[in-house]
């Protein structure tokens, strides 16, 4: 199987779905000839033209609303929000419109729109270009929230998101764009695969601890698990892949097996994704727990710009190793 970049996998997913369905189109800032801030849409305009790969004015709220308006009358727009931080400008159209229409109009319409948006730090972009705000969208009924960790899942989940009849917040990671992963050739057997929304995946299996992560933190968790295995601590790593609807069954099955849970997220700890996972683990797996669940998450601070400060604010494999070791030692 060939290896391609996470960003290429996303581009392939869009190109294949645009080939497959004339109602699919992409709109956003600087996505045509420029190819998007992270070059994810590069080459699409040459193939599909400027009507379907549509540069927009800098108007995030209306870009998202246009996506919703086109979706309810039969199109399948993919809205490109250049940085997840900018999605704050579009909260009204996403929260009050995209998320509500199907329910509040009595099921008369469907809202098949995807909001693609890169989250996370690690590139020294500073406080307004590095946030991980996905927890906000988990809180809104009606939205699906997807956050792939690998090139394979990025492609398969984006194809599922485009085909889904609901609004999907598709969380990408700036640092993962340049990471390669195995993805089948499109014309190979199984090349037209999709990855279902709503299913987590166990990527490492072990006995002592469940590490739950998503997006870029999955790789950090796997590195930590591999290192911990050298010291005799074996871990399940659960890659959530979808944050809403959450695959609570896969989480519970793993935590019930290992009896311990460590939740790793790149967003801020307070009221973050990890808080919800922790609550679910506590509610649903309490009788199986041999130790209190623990969290490794970003510091409750704006993401700083300077490399040293940013590294200190965001979690990494070493933080996970330290937290896991402490947890095992304390409750063995």
């Amino acid at each position: 199987m060939r290896e391609i970049y996470y960003s290429w996998a996303l581009r392939e997913a869009m190109a294949e779905e645009m080939e497959r369905d004339p109602n699919v189109f992409v709109l956003g800032e600087d996505i045509a000839e420029y190819g998007g801030a992270f070059k994810v849409t590069q080459g699409l305009v040459e193939k599909f033209g400027r009507a379907r790969v549509r540069n927009t004015p800098i108007s995030e709220n209306t870009i998202c609303g246009v996506g919703v308006g086109a979706a309810i009358v039969g199109m399948r727009p993919i809205v490109d929000i250049m940085f997840q931080d900018f999605i704050t400008l579009a909260m009204d159209q996403i929260v009050n419109h995209a998320a509500k229409f199907h329910y509040m109009y009595g099921g008369q319409c469907r809202v098949p729109v995807v909001f693609r948006t890169p989250a996370g730090g690690g590139r020294c972009y500073g406080p307004t270009h590095s946030q991980s705000l996905e927890a906000w969208f988990m809180h809104v009924p009606g939205l699906k929230v997807v956050a792939p960790a690998t090139a394979y899942d990025a492609k398969g989940l984006l194809k599922s998101a485009i085909r889904d009849d609901n609004p999907v917040i598709f969380v990408e990671s700036k640092l993962l764009y340049g990471i390669k992963g195995q993805v089948p050739e499109p014309d190979a057997d199984g090349g037209d695969y999709t990855v279902p929304i709503g299913e987590a995946k166990v990527t490492r299996e072990g006995e002592h601890l469940t590490i739950i992560a998503y997006s870029r933190m999955t790789g950090e968790a796997e590195r930590a698990a591999d290192a911990l295995a050298q010291n005799g601590i074996t871990c399940d790593v659960v890659d959530l892949r979808t944050l809403a609807p959450l695959d609570a069954d896969t989480i519970a099955a793993s935590v019930e097996k290992t009896g311990r849970a460590l939740i790793v997220c790149e967003d801020c700890k307070t009221a973050g994704v990890s808080a919800e996972i922790m609550a679910r683990v506590t509610e649903e797996c309490f009788d199986f727990l041999q130790a209190p669940p623990r969290r490794v998450a970003a510091a409750d601070t704006p993401v700083p710009c300077a490399d040293t400060l940013e590294k200190a604010a965001l979690p990494d494999a070493q933080n996970i190793i330290d937290a896991a070791t402490a947890l095992i030692q304390q409750y063995s």
Partner: peptide, 29 residues
């Protein structure tokens, strides 16, 4: 928050001017 898609009424809207982007999107479609 009522709509009637059979007659092309895409919805009343509790957010002031919230319908303008929606209409713009429908027009784009």
């Amino acid at each position: 928050h009522v709509a009637d898609y059979a007659v092309g009424f895409l919805g009343s809207n509790g957010i002031t001017a919230g319908g303008l982007p929606i209409a713009t999107g429908a027009a784009l479609a």
